[in-house]
Design a protein around this nucleic acid. Structure first.
Lengths: 233, 233, 233, 233
DNA sequence: TATGAATGAGATTTCATTCAT
DNA sequence: CATGAATGAAATCTCATTCAT
């Protein structure tokens, strides 16, 4: 069965190749500019071949979205320890977000594509309660759980229902990504973008924190500090 | 020169007509769906005529953006009293935003178009320091002044420079509009959108407020309550 | 208003040009092979231009169908005298059909396109009673009237309702056209086709005629006879 | 040579499988919708494999046509008794046609494919006199023999040569099938189709019958009556 | 000044056919 | 013998922009 296995692997690799190129192109030129022709050129495949691997352009986008959302959820959950308080978990969430952006820009496609595919998602879902089982839905649920924990242990304070607040939080995160994603590649400066993310997140955490919360938890770590810490033995 | 004057006036009227229709169409169908054909049909002009008044589709969008930004700045400045504290001014800012959305959805075009046209604006401007003289730049400056006032009078607390923070604030406001702007008109539910705006703004104000700030200033007025309160003398 | 008129006329001429070329191409290569590219090449217009005059390919086909059907109905009605018996009217119907084929091949597109556009038309219409107001519907109604007249005056005999029978009659006429329309142009021999039409129609008339009908009315005129008669002063 | 034989047999079985599935698909979705992909999926073979057994899609269609035509001829000949008169033989012909339609829709492919493949067949064959040895040619010849018998025994009356008339008869039969074949399966209503066939055939028989023919032979049996009658011993 | 008319370039998707393995 | 993989060519339709009148 070695042959079969290799074939499967190669097929999977092709899919991966297509998805990677599509993701790259979205990052490069923005989602609005993504065309099947571009993906074909970029992968050195014909347009027809793309349709061997994906039923439609939309299917490609959906898959990228699902993968990125899943990756994000897994990444975050692996980093939140069960004993951490709500506000600590929230900080971990943001740290993960920034880390994934710094590493692979993975988070880029997360929200931009979802807006593209299901424009009403962030406004509707909480009400209908539906579709929490899709990857974006699971991301929403995960964030809601973090917020819930914080409300329960008194580190966060809000009048809103966690699920509704989770949507708001994603909405705000979306702002940065959507803005950055529209930038032409050369204009992007990772330092500025990360700094901007940091500002936004710090604002959010302050806005969410309960009154008595430990002051030191309100400030996000300095960008360079985090890096140098990694470099130290 | 009376003839010349009339001609100029008529030319201006035509431009106004075109801009108004384009804005209307953006509100109706979203910026992605805006086409020159639609504008031509709506104004009862030919597509070629549009090019007599504007060099390109992009030029139309730029002008709408400039007008809307100016209108917003004027509106806000007319409502902020000189004696109000920084946090009060900030509250007025949000109230204006919501009010303009409720009245004419004017704010829609404010941020959506800007992102569309000059994606880097919100990230770059603060650095280069340039272009504070364009309408979007003036909007940024106005918000920066509000923040500055709050820092000065101790009602707001932040480590960031006002101008940088102003960009962040606009960025976050953008999130809602961008999300909403992609929805087809019939799918938009003003109540939900306003509620969402309120959540976001409340988060922001809490995040910005200094510690000792009057608690009552942190909560934004209830949507319905706010309305009736405004109407009372 | 001379200019306006000329423009209108030219516009109409363009539409006519497109329709004529499309009709020609259908005759040339069959309806299945008709493409917008072909029409564009044939008219020396760009594909985009075609869409200025017709909303879609289907719209072009519908218009051709409507025109041809109307032309046929008008032509026939102008040739049936009010005093003629049912069977005479029926003969006139066939004569018209053949005449139109001989002159302009107009009838070609009549049925082929309808089958293409509304495959169920000939089987469904009589039952639902709907759409008798479209050009194809009017053609159907016209034939039904002829049949009705024959039943009333005793020259035709059938157990079927006129409208239902009219569908059957068109169905049979369709057979010839559909067959011929698929032939490559050079393979077509008008004599053979006309002879074939004649056979089919004669069969039909015999099948429809009541028993006592004048024998001479059952045989359709010889093809050459008809022509030479026309040529005589 | 046992191995060779088995291989040949298996090859034949594969061909049969492919043909059967193609026929089924034509019946299901119409000939226009038939694609190599569909056949491959249906047979659980790869598209490439189809090309090992048939040179092209057209070759597949030709073979189906040949088989169906042969089957039809055999079926009819097995049902016509040597003593029956011409008009009785003609009635048997139609009965077979309807019966085959009712049982397996076999007749669908008969005429539909022929038109698709060799549009000129029904118009040309009689002239060239060639190709009477192909399966469609044999079908034509068989019908011609039936007509000839009727002319000889005085039950049918026509001025045309039997072979020419046979083409006309097939042409007319084609009309129904071609029309029906374009309908998507669910839209097909067997009752209506059979009733339509009946109308057409009755018209034809009346048109062909000689004057003195037994009246009872002119009317085709009622659809339901026919069925129960056939079942009775 | 105004515009009707035209179009090049590009979008997504389908399908019969080929070829290396 | 069998096939997975690939593709060229073609289909319909859209849109910002230009230009002769």
């Amino acid at each position: 069965m070695g042959i079969q296995e290799r074939k499967n692997r190669e097929k999977e690799e092709r899919k991966t190749l297509i998805l990677a190129k599509a993701k790259e192109l979205i990052l490069e030129h923005g989602i609005d500019a993504l065309s099947m022709q571009e993906i074909a050129d970029g992968t050195e495949l014909s347009k027809a071949t793309l349709y061997l691997y994906f039923q439609s352009k939309e299917a490609i986008l959906k898959e990228i979205l699902a993968e990125s959302a899943s990756a994000f959820v897994e990444y975050v959950e692996s980093r939140i320890s069960p004993e951490s308080s709500g506000i600590e978990a929230l900080r971990t969430l943001w740290a993960s977000y920034m880390s994934l952006y710094g590493e692979s820009h993975e988070v880029f496609v997360l929200t931009g594509i979802n807006n593209f595919l299901e424009p009403g998602f962030l406004l509707d879902l909480g009400r209908t309660g539906a579709d929490l089982d899709t990857p974006p839905g699971r991301m929403l649920a995960m964030i809601a759980r973090v917020l819930e924990r914080g409300i329960a242990d008194g580190t966060l304070k809000t009048d809103l229902k966690p699920l509704k607040l989770a949507r708001t939080v994603i909405l705000i995160a979306t702002a940065i990504i959507d803005t950055v994603a529209r930038l032409p590649r050369p204009a992007r400066d990772s330092r500025i973008i990360l700094a901007e993310m940091r500002s936004v997140f710090e604002l959010l955490i302050r806005g969410l924190a309960a009154d008595g919360t430990d002051r030191s938890l309100l400030a996000l770590p300095d960008l360079d500090a985090g890096r140098s810490r990694n470099r130290r033995p």
